[in-house]
Design a protein around this nucleic acid. Structure first.
Lengths: 224, 224
DNA sequence: TGTATCCGAAACTACTCAGTACCGTATATA
DNA sequence: TATATACGGTACTGAGTAGTTTCGGATACA
């Protein structure tokens, strides 16, 4: 197993000026609120999401949310950003490229990926208008996935398993791109079968490792 | 060149009951209105788009729009659907898979594709809530692209240029998926260089035709 | 040439929702 | 125990927008 650090330090300044007396702000519920925001975001998208929905789902008052985040936009950016913590901290190292790729196929990882893509779809139309949101999405969802593939390809290259002039940058994006396409547009599940097809019929053949770019056992479907 | 019909008959019933006298509805401006809708959609997304914006851009009255479409949603579905007319009516047939794929790289086609992807981003969050819109997007943007690749791969297979057990369904989606990913998420241009990299470093190697899955002349970029 | 219907423009209605203000209550600090 | 503040909840404000109606003027058909 290998370390792969993707999380940066958490820079919240808060800048509390003079808390002389009384009760301090209870930050213990922040994660629940952000989680509620992500749920609503995944279900309804950015524009369909209302602060009331988030507050209701988190069983919090609307005022409480505005005490912590200045606007809906900041809440969403924060919610998206908090997703990046603690994912892919440890990745497999099986000794072969195929082994590494196959070892990444786990039910939990599949389900998690599907949810992240739903969230991405929900904020899609905002991305072009909010660089902050765009960056948050990139750091939390996009980059981590490609990063893992890049690592696997580089290691295979160092081992001499694949040629040294492989286009790692392009290839490491192929499976994430196809997964996004499949979930958001085709609305088909990103299941084990699909991921294995990607590995054995696209990735490995493309790096010269495929025994053949074979189709699965059943005949290829003909209709659209 | 080969025929590839993707457009179905235009089933508008209109059902005008009794136009006994007076002026008939002027449908000559419908395309301008739909075009205006697509422009606004690409710029502002579904939720950011207002009927007033579309009416203003088409230099039409809001009432005129509602006389033709019952709601904003129907207007958008219609606008998206009307995109599918007359694209890829004719596709190249060069005799080799690479020749066919490269022949599809044209500046006009690239620009057109970019615009379509912007529109797709704009309606992304609506797709999961409107099956009609989802179908329209699929028919107008997604399917045509994959269809061309499928045709190229099938022809190459019939020629014996590639193995008969290639996973055509998966491979025909790889480039469209990567193009969407690149435009919508990475926000990089889908230019000739990228498309050539897809052909020479992914598609052809994956079907066993690559001389090698080589990186381009310049060294592979290292940073994210 | 008359007339019914279209047109673009603009006013109007009904509604949603971000953000604010305030309530009575709970609770951490002093 | 006293107090200041956060809390959940609710009512409010103001802006924006889908959809309707109404207007005077233009235009195709009889």
């Amino acid at each position: 197993m290998t370390q792969l650090d993707l999380s940066g330090p958490d820079s919240e300044l808060e800048s509390e000026s003079s808390p002389k007396l009384g009760r301090k702000r209870d930050h213990s519920r922040d994660p629940e609120i952000l989680e509620a925001a992500l749920e609503v975001l995944a279900e309804s998208g950015y524009d369909g999401m209302t602060i009331d929905m988030v507050a209701a789902r988190a069983k919090a008052g609307k005022g409480t949310l505005y005490r912590r985040w200045a606007s809906k936009g900041e809440l969403v950016v924060d919610a998206v950003a908090c997703m990046k913590r603690g994912q892919y901290d440890v990745v497999p190292d099986t000794g072969t490229l195929r082994g590494d790729l196959v070892a990444m196929i786990k039910p939990a990882s599949i389900e998690d990926g599907e949810r992240k893509l739903q969230i991405m779809a929900g904020v899609m139309s905002m991305i072009s208008r909010s660089p902050e949101l765009s960056d948050a999405i990139n750091d939390a969802i996009i980059r981590p996935r490609a990063e893992v593939n890049r690592l696997f390809l580089r290691r295979a290259m160092e081992r001499g398993e694949i040629a040294s002039d492989i286009d790692v940058e392009t290839l490491s994006l192929v499976t994430p791109a196809m997964a996004a396409y499949r979930t958001l547009i085709l609305k088909k599940p990103v299941d084990r079968e699909f991921l294995l097809a990607m590995i054995d019929h696209v990735m490995l053949p493309a790096v010269g490792l495929g025994s053949a770019a074979s189709a699965p056992a059943q005949a290829a479907p003909v209709g659209a």
